[in-house]
Design a protein around this nucleic acid. Sequence first.
DNA 1: GCGGTTTCTGTAAGCGGTTACAAGCCCGTG
DNA 2: CACGGGCTTGTAACCGCTTACAGAAACCGC
Lengths: 354, 354
Amino acid sequence: MSPARPDSASVAAPAARGTHATIHDVARVAGVSVASVSRVFNGRDHVRAEMRARVEQAAAQLGYVPHAGARSLSMARTGAMGVVLPDLHGEFFSELLRGMDREASRRGLGLLLTVLHDGRGLDTLAALRGQVDGLMVMAPELDPAILARHMPRGLASVFLACIPQDGSPSLRIDNRAGAAAAVAHLAAGGAKRIVHISGPAGNLDALERRAGAEAAAAAAGVALTVIEGDFHEGSGAAVGESVAAGTLEADAIFAANDMMAIGALMALKRHGVAVPGQVAIVGFDDIPLSRLVSPALTSVAIDIAAMGARAVAQLAARITAAREGFLESTSTGADETIVPHLMVRETTRETDRG
Amino acid sequence: MSPARPDSASVAAPAARGTHATIHDVARVAGVSVASVSRVFNGRDHVRAEMRARVEQAAAQLGYVPHAGARSLSMARTGAMGVVLPDLHGEFFSELLRGMDREASRRGLGLLLTVLHDGRGLDTLAALRGQVDGLMVMAPELDPAILARHMPRGLASVFLACIPQDGSPSLRIDNRAGAAAAVAHLAAGGAKRIVHISGPAGNLDALERRAGAEAAAAAAGVALTVIEGDFHEGSGAAVGESVAAGTLEADAIFAANDMMAIGALMALKRHGVAVPGQVAIVGFDDIPLSRLVSPALTSVAIDIAAMGARAVAQLAARITAAREGFLESTSTGADETIVPHLMVRETTRETDRG
DNA sequence: GCGGTTTCTGTAAGCGGTTACAAGCCCGTG
DNA sequence: CACGGGCTTGTAACCGCTTACAGAAACCGC
């Protein structure tokens, strides 16, 4: 019983049609044990040069690639992070993912995307166990209690722009400060009657932005009327129509996001209302589109991509902490607050060409 | 030796700190075998109501969730699809993912995102084996041979807008037809000297669009000058500058994508060149932004989200085909061609208000 | 030429599920 | 009351890989 040698007969069918070669096939072809093959591939342990060569040759010949699933099962590590997002549109979505990807791929991690279509999808969260090492969750519309109930236990997680659960760290946007800066800027520019187009009622960001706007308006002694929007262009356009028609009196509009601001802007333009001459406008998010509309939109800027990258970094830290055994540690991982800044453009500033 | 009964002593520590309960823990607590627990959770086999109740109760008590990795190992099915994309920006990216997600989540599948940063990332493709059931690959910039070399063998795949490998089906945009329609439209509007801002040299879409434009220009008997761009706003702006300065003579511009068209549009506007009065502009892709700039951009429209959804559907079909054993079948899965259509807006049409 | 290291390599026990197979149960019949 | 057959359930063998442990081999100084 000599150790298995490369024997042309037994090597005949290393893998069935379409099936992949396994580590055993490689071991058999190379005439070594599976442990050695594993060692060669993970390169931590000592392996003689000749053995390494034999294994690599066999692996190449068979087109062997380790099976990520099996590996993650025995190592308790998947190499992927879950991203849980609401049903986002457009630039915010892509910028966030872009930032996450930048940081994740730097660390050799994958990103598993899960979109919550207004609540549905929540039950798939639990199924992520064993498929990802941690979760980045953004669910500003969701009742924190419901969210908590659906979070898979024991999976490291980071929350974006929503209330953190069970001591997980979170990344928060200082919506109040951003909104306050916007309103203060409008007031400083001479606005007396500001209309705030808010986000949907249940949305946390929306609530905070509204609060910030109200505080700043009170401080500056200007009137603020709040109209609820839905973060989409249409609701902004509706407000623009009302203002143009005179139904709604306003010399400035502060929208809770850029799409609504742009909707309002387009509606006003369509009706020949001068922006910023008669009505000044400020948005929130500073999506790339903002500087392309004309007049270019003044907006509260958040570095969305950077936020995504930070989320990955935080989660990575939290995952390794958990692996080291500090998981129950009282240092829950620092929350981070991202402070937005005002990007002044043409909708709040008379330009040479109006 | 009765079968293990729920015994408070042995049940003491179902899971260590932070660790998940396994199917064995559930079996022990419920006093049944692991097979039964598995049956209850997969619900295919007959299980008595009382057993079901016992297991469900135990699972709930332990907060048990099946481990996706382990399950995929024994079932040879992961429930996720890999998405391989170039380093895309903006709306195209988000629309595509949006469409893919819509279809994937309808089928209960996840999306694992891998971005190719100009070539790097290719080696991670092979590592996807065992992590996804199939791959959707979009790599218009990549040499097909290099791509082929890096594709994990035996993994079902669908190619988007690039040359298919090994008989995998692909989804292609009829770039030629779209570009031809754009140029024909410009010629019909009276253009005599058209400038085409192409995409980068190695890009397949870019080449096809250029070819379509050239063919249509020849057919219509109008002059076409090609200037190479990079799909970003800046290169479009550069052309706009040249045209405004008179360095480049043109009464119409056809850009290979919308961002370059918008760049050109902004540059022309900045210099007071009338659009479409002096220069008409057509873009390609019809990203949401196109209708928001002013004048609104005429563009060749592709339903990007629909394309993403189709890719998922095709891949799903191919995966089940492979599972049924038709993997070597000569019917390689039908290629699909998506025919774009022209969306005429203000940059090629005098409007009431110019 | 022998014990003690040091450096490789193989064996086998998991990781957490699924599932073929066999065994046990319960029932209606002849 | 023995018997065949339909439901349920348990046992154990995988899925493909990592890794603790132990055995083998090579090298050391004496």
